[in-house]
Computed example of a mutant assay.
Amino acid sequence: MPEDKHSKALDLTDAALEKIVAGDEKAADRLIEQAKKLDPSAPGEVLRDLDEDASNSKSQ
Rank of each mutant, 00 (worst) to 15 (best):
K8R: 14
K8S: 14
K8V: 14
K8N: 13
K8P: 06
A9P: 10
L10C: 14
L10E: 10
D11T: 10
D11F: 13
D11A: 15
D11V: 10
L12P: 06
L12W: 14
T13F: 01
T13H: 03
T13K: 03
D14E: 13
D14Y: 11
D14V: 14
A15R: 12
A15T: 08
A15D: 06
A15C: 06
A16R: 02
A16W: 00
A16M: 05
L17V: 06
L17E: 10
L17S: 05
L17G: 15
L17T: 09
L17M: 11
E18C: 07
E18R: 09
I20G: 12
I20W: 12
V21N: 02
A22G: 07
A22F: 04
A22N: 06
G23H: 01
G23V: 01
G23C: 01
G23K: 01
D24M: 02
D24R: 08
E25H: 12
E25P: 02
E25Q: 09
E25S: 08
E25D: 03
E25I: 12
E25R: 12
E25V: 13
K26M: 08
K26P: 00
K26H: 05
K26W: 07
A27P: 02
A27F: 00
A27S: 09
A28F: 00
D29C: 09
D29P: 03
R30D: 10
R30M: 13
R30A: 11
R30E: 15
I32S: 01
I32C: 02
Q34K: 10
A35W: 01
A35Q: 00
A35T: 00
A35Y: 00
K36I: 03
K36L: 03
K36N: 07
K36F: 04
K37L: 15
L38K: 05
L38H: 05
D39H: 04
D39Q: 06
D39W: 03
